[in-house]
Design a protein around this nucleic acid. Sequence first.
DNA 1: GTCTATAATGAGATAGAC
DNA 2: GTCTATCTCATTATAGAC
Lengths: 183, 183
Amino acid sequence: MGTADRLVESTRELLWERGYTATSPRAIQERAGAGQGSMYHHFRGKPDLAAEAIRRTAAELRTAAEASLNGPGDAVERITAYLHRSRDVLKGCPIGRLAQDPGIVDDPVLREPLDTTFTWLRGRLAELLAEDVPAVDAGATAATIVATLQGGYVLARAAGSTEPFEQAVAGVLGLLSLATGKA
Amino acid sequence: MGTADRLVESTRELLWERGYTATSPRAIQERAGAGQGSMYHHFRGKPDLAAEAIRRTAAELRTAAEASLNGPGDAVERITAYLHRSRDVLKGCPIGRLAQDPGIVDDPVLREPLDTTFTWLRGRLAELLAEDVPAVDAGATAATIVATLQGGYVLARAAGSTEPFEQAVAGVLGLLSLATGKA
DNA sequence: GTCTATAATGAGATAGAC
DNA sequence: GTCTATCTCATTATAGAC
């Protein structure tokens, strides 16, 4: 892995752990084992490096989601697999957590991958629901599922425990099972 | 309003707008129209001031929630009123947004009001659901409702639009209406 | 109680040697 | 390509005058 790649990977980790505003170029350099000159040779500055890091993380998240959502089973089974996927709940969502950072939301270039990722995810879930669960509004229910996940992370971090996340996921799956009549 | 109160109010606003890490004592002082000496006379420092600000915001949020949840109607009607309450969606939840800030989550004193607030809210919603909606797991569904709200804020900020928030709320209410058989 | 120094530390980036 | 100064500004506080 070259220096530029190590810088991007370090940035990805730090954005997940601390967010954008609280991540300093200095910390990125230290974790990547690179000097300042090296960083400013490969990237124009912190925003440029962060943009590359966020795009890479967004692409990875989408690939991981597709694995569950294109898997075997009907809509509710695929969504269940997606929601039950192993996650580092107390670290939060590497994309969703950035939505609280003013430095991200106020910069169109940095916010764009977040918007694109969630718009795609809601659309894909809505497709699945429209096919198999006619009893519900597919678009609204898809938004609820993604929001449950993102809000579950928030509640877990506030509680210092994964329990609220697991409850929230169980709750939305319970409601979905009523909609399919397979309760 | 005395100087100490103005400092706390300024801190509350800035915590909501920027979070804890990105809020500087300097910014607090400027907004409150107070000097540095004044702030350090009334408070030991930024964490002390933030603790007071967060406790005050949490108390206010709880009072506002109780107004809807103790209002007229059955469980689903009260929850609907709570979810439809007017909110500044793109600013996010003044309590929930702090859960993404490492400076809050890593400090037990600053995290405690978040935990207490969400634990109370989930409990209160679960009480209402247990009375009127026997078809669902009250605790899990309560967690889903709170998570939908918190996740709805995240999606709205990522999108730069209130639309995903409104969809998520509509979705969870649609699912709840199935559970009561009043669809 | 409130004010104005003062100061140590880090952020974020540029310059120029190697 | 990478390194080590260097620079400017903000952060977070302390000290002491008023």
